[in-house]
Design a protein around this nucleic acid. Sequence first.
RNA 1: GCCGACAUAGCUCAGUUGGCUAGAGCAGCUGAUUUGUAAUCAGCAGGCCCGGGGUUCAAAUCCUCGUGUCGGCACCA
Length: 602
Amino acid sequence: MSAIAIKYNDEIVDLVTAEERGIEGEAIELDNSPESLDVLRHSTAHLMAQAIKSLYPDAEFYVGPTVKEGFYYDFKTESEIGEGDLKKIEKQMLSFAKKKYKIEKYEISMEEAKEKFKDDHLKLSVMERIPSDTVSIYKQGEFEDLCRGPHLPSVGLIRYFKLTKIAGAYLGGNSKNEMLTRIYGIAFATKEALKEHMDMMREAEKRDHRKLGNEMKLFTFREEVGAGFAIWLPAGGRLRSRLESLLFKAHRKRGYEPVRGPEMLRSDLWKTSGHYQNYGENMYFTHIDELEFGVKPMNCVGHIKVYEDELHSYRDLPLKYFEYGVVHRHEMTGALHGLFRVREFTQDDAHIFCTVDQIEEQIIEVVDFVDKIMSTFGFEYKMMISTKPEKAVGDAEVWEKSEAALIAAMEAHNLAYTIDEGGGAFYGPKIDIKILDAIGREWQCGTIQLDNNLPERFELEYNGEDNEKIQPVMIHRAILGSFERFIGILTEHYAGEFPMFIAPTQVAIVPVAESHKEYAKLLSDKLIDINADSEIYAKNDSLNKRIRIAEKTRVPMIVVLGDEEIENKTVAIRDRRTREQYNLSEEEFLQLIQTKVNEVNF
RNA sequence: GCCGACAUAGCUCAGUUGGCUAGAGCAGCUGAUUUGUAAUCAGCAGGCCCGGGGUUCAAAUCCUCGUGUCGGCACCA
């Protein structure tokens, strides 16, 4: 196999450019390495543009880069293009690929380029953003495109690709601009790699929590209830309450006090906190007796009122209040997505009131807490520190000090983190925790945020050693983020096969015949005593069928009870995964379940 | 919010270019069967075809306005 490009000083250079510049380097072959795929996908994007141009001659093109999962091209045409047209475009691409057009390159001045693409206002706007005086043009067959490369030597090398999605996208990523059509695709060097990728996509689809949530009866959404409002069904309710009680204990162990603020508060308070001005368009309001109330989008104000309930000494700090706070946020319709993005959700929210000197140790404590939970579920995660944004309140010194405290906490404990410059909240810097799930996707869940703004606005204080009034620091933190999103992620992470300690039902009991129902009920009661839920499959169906149904519910353990078991006081256990069967005495069985249910503590 | 697609029974889906009483499988109910590890048989019931308006002799099907869902974009304190 021959090279498709070379690597020159860490730069990927295509063959035409290498020749033009008279340089040599390590050969890059057409394979599934990241460098090679990048070139391949970029050229596939161009091939797609060529196909689109031939099918829709009025099409104008914006940019067509490669991205993490393939490539896309943004363009515009007067014709309506829908999902059904992707096949047609793919076909055209293949026919061009068969012609094995050489991909040629030449350079022209910016002026010439502007003349050349004068009818393509999108290309012109691309050129606006290029500082250089000359630009390169890549040509394949009749099709020419402004591009800096690198590209394959020939479109004939493009064989294994698929157009995956069609969607709208704002020009330049700005919602004030016009909307273009975007087609996404994927390409690989080999047929096998493409197939593997498509298989993985199908696997991800099978894990989709919306699908599993429906199948497993965890939760539902209903048109008449309203968009973004989840309804928790019994199975989901059981799972959720297990998570809640585990987490409740974990908070108590760490000195958090449970508190609760009201669901809606007078708007005056939201004006004091600044939410009215800064977040008002996402809030739900109601008017009662001439007064305006705002439904809480966050729990901070309630916790501040808890703090204000009594005078505090420096000796009391840190104070940690937590609440499973139900919040409402009017998210934009297009943002809603299963349990991942809803309009009403419950945060595992806490606020820590502490002195400036305590920030570091408090951050560390929270980070440890996070680590405990994430490792229990087998999640890897990343932490990202977001610093002062352009639009920020509070004085610069405090900002610096807070940011330094976050970084110091990370450094002191050798924790890996990245920095998102300017990505903080307007009131303070934060650490975001991003979960990597079983199939490598990232989810933003927990967050730890320093806040000097609210203590200032509400004039919070405590008495210092010399009886002077000092303003405390407030740390907002959530670990799961919200039960909704976290359970959504858990569902996909485990593909619905929840481990015993969190599963909606721990055991499925299948009595062989009518006469064994009584023993089943007895066992079920004993399971409740050890905090395990079970379901008895005693319907008038064949044994095979009931086992099949039990299997399909993804319950972690199935036990079958018949004459033998009753006689010997044993249970026949069927392992879901291996389909193997083995017997345990009732006592051993209960012991096993008890261990498994309690094996986890955060 | 924007671009595009979609909405038929509890669930998953059929339903020709507008044309008879809108179909199937699973789930549900009633029987029969009482089962030893992934679907026993038979019968029954179940629909304002997402909601308003319209076009037409005739609308699940066409138009329109909503609502909701999906794929992205933008948003995400």
